[in-house]
């Protein structure tokens, strides 16, 4: 007898759904649950997705979590870091990145907390977020939804939000495309004005709980309940993709 889906599994399926319809693009997933989700998408509704091993190789079957091509599997392409930048500029890529802070318009920060000149807390650096967000679809994953992450204004705009992209006056930002933000509490997308809103709440989560953990107003009027994994998805997550349940370490309970 199988147990019901965990919160981590619901999140993984929500992440998988973010790639639904993406087509033949390089899927880039940062974080354990996005990594589970992208493999699930590849094994179910999105067989054309192209997956990398996180090092320099494209794998024709989803590699086990945390394993590189060195652990075996069929290589279908070679993408050293230099080629990643060429691919992202071509637009044939779809990222799900983390966010130490994200604001109402989807501006994301992974660079520093506080004034960048002398940060209270230095983070990893903007990495590829500025380039990703102006070149191809970008989603965000937040494992722990709090008001310290969902803030009124981020300290360093790493990934470009909808307000800034819309205010830009040239045609250069035409590929800017923020999709969804997925957290341990729900799935969020953007309204006509580019403002974040609740698309769905995970089962057992209330709009009030989200509001209490978010530093800005979120429209909940169209919120539904996040779908549950079906039996095949649960089977794939538990036995094929993540048999050691590393997903539970990212989202417990």
């Amino acid at each position: 007898m199988t147990t019901g889906p965990s919160r981590a599994e619901i999140c993984a399926v929500a992440c998988a759904d973010a790639w639904r319809g993406a087509g033949e693009v390089l899927a880039h997933a940062v974080g354990t649950i996005p990594a589970v989700g992208v493999r699930l998408a590849r094994l179910t509704h999105s067989p054309d997705l192209v997956l990398s091993d996180g090092e320099a190789f494209l794998m024709s079957d989803p590699p086990p979590l945390g394993r590189t091509a060195a652990a075996g599997g069929t290589i279908e392409g070679w993408v050293p870091f230099r080629r990643i930048f060429d691919i992202l500029s071509s637009g044939r890529r779809h990222s799900m990145m983390g966010a130490s802070q994200v604001d109402q318009y989807g501006n994301q920060n992974i660079s520093a907390i506080g004034d960048w000149r002398r940060p209270e807390r230095a983070l990893i650096g903007v990495r590829g977020a500025p380039g990703n967000t102006v070149n191809h679809r970008t989603d965000y994953w937040v494992a722990r939804h709090t008001a310290r992450v969902f803030v009124p204004a981020v300290d360093v705009v790493s990934g470009v939000g909808n307000d800034r992209a819309r205010a830009h006056t040239s045609t250069s930002l035409r590929f800017h495309n923020l999709g969804v933000v997925i957290s341990n509490l729900g799935v969020f997308d953007y309204d006509d004005k580019g403002r974040m809103r609740i698309r769905s709440l995970h089962p057992g989560v209330s709009a009030d709980e989200v509001a209490a953990n978010t530093g800005f107003e979120l429209d909940a009027s169209a919120a539904v309940t996040t779908r549950l994994p079906d039996d095949r998805e649960l089977e794939l997550i538990r036995t094929v993709i993540d048999p050691t349940a590393s997903r539970d370490r990212e989202v417990p309970g």
């Binding site: 960048w116 500025p130 070149n135 705009v157 470009v160 250069s172």
Partner: peptide, 21 residues
């Protein structure tokens, strides 16, 4: 030239950076 960096705070953190039409 590159698209990367436009409208991000990389431009603010590196005020010597310029754009080109």
């Amino acid at each position: 030239p590159t698209r990367a960096g436009l409208e991000s705070d990389v431009m603010a953190m590196n005020p010597e950076l310029r754009t080109v039409a």
